[in-house]
Amino acid sequence: MKSFKFSFYASLLLIVLLSFSTSSTRSCVSAFTLPLLMADVSSTQTQTSSDSEASVRYLYDPAERQAHYNNDADIAQYLVDLHDHQATFDFCGGMMFQLELTPALRDHLVHVAAINSASSGSGSSGSSNSGTCSEQPVVFDAGKPRMFMTDNYQQTSNADNLGVFHGREIRQVPTAAGGMGMVLQLSLATGTGTQDSTSTNTNTNADTNADKEGWTSAELARYDGWGHDSGREWRKGNQLEEEGFTNFRQKYGPNAFSLHHRFFLHYDRANRIWLSAEDGCEGTPAPSQKPSLSNLFGLL
């Protein structure tokens, strides 16, 4: 009887050990195969992303950009293409902002690009070319990396859609490209629009602003973008809507908030183009790095 009991318990213990061993083996297999499976998925995603980025390398690579845009003769079209491809700018060494043009500014730049295309096609050196030169956005040389170094600089809220643009950095935007919830919006400065493409008037009356998403009267009146961000007025969605940007939260999300800046474009010595705020913070076009599934699961 004792022998039977011993055999029974020994058999039971053996079954438990075998079960534990099998379970452990499954766990070990899962622990090793999951990263491999995830790596395969990540590799596929990276390849797809790389293929997509390769087709628009002219947005990010200086040499290809110059070749694509006729030695940077059509910066208006370049800005439109950056917007249309939801291109990202690398600000401050890793903060990825999606560049977005307001509909009014995009329409204005499309109009300018069309003039440029017509002028190039005609080969004329008449009024069309002079109109193109006056309308194309300016990219300042590498010797002017800060706005205060440009000619005729003044601490003001004025912009002309040529050398200086109105814009906003917008945070906590859930749909923003780049994965960081950040958008850099450029808008049409007041007193201009495609209805009067030759105007560079910087009228600060918001009623004449052709851009419904442009700076509000309050933003124009209280602009101090040459100062440090910490001392400036950040606006939440409800405030912007009360001031006149009526669909701000609908467009950017309920928690989005913003800080308005004046921006300008300049080259660096590597021929990259930088979009620089008046306070000196700046970014250059760069492909966004999408996190892989393996990183999301903490496996790498």
Rank of each mutant, 00 (worst) to 15 (best):
N201W: 06
V29L: 15
L13I: 10
L18D: 04
L18S: 12
R57F: 05
M95S: 13
P285Q: 06
N158C: 09
M38E: 11
P137C: 05
N205L: 11
G94C: 05
E282C: 08
A39Y: 12
F257N: 14
Q250H: 09
G163F: 00
F165V: 02
P137M: 04
T204Q: 15
S128Y: 05
A142D: 09
S49N: 12
G143Q: 08
E242W: 04
D141N: 09
H260T: 11
V138R: 06
C28E: 11
F4V: 15
S24R: 10
N158W: 10
A76Y: 01
L12A: 13
P291H: 08
T198L: 12
F263C: 04
G227Y: 08
G167E: 06
T246N: 10
G298S: 08
L101G: 00
T156S: 12
G283T: 05
T48S: 11
T46W: 03
F8K: 09
S217N: 08
D224W: 04
L293R: 01
P145V: 01
H68W: 06
Y78E: 01
E233C: 08
E233H: 15
W226D: 08
M38G: 04
A270N: 13
P285T: 06
S52W: 08
A63G: 05
V112P: 00
D74C: 07
V80N: 01
T208V: 14
R222G: 10
L18Y: 05
G131N: 13
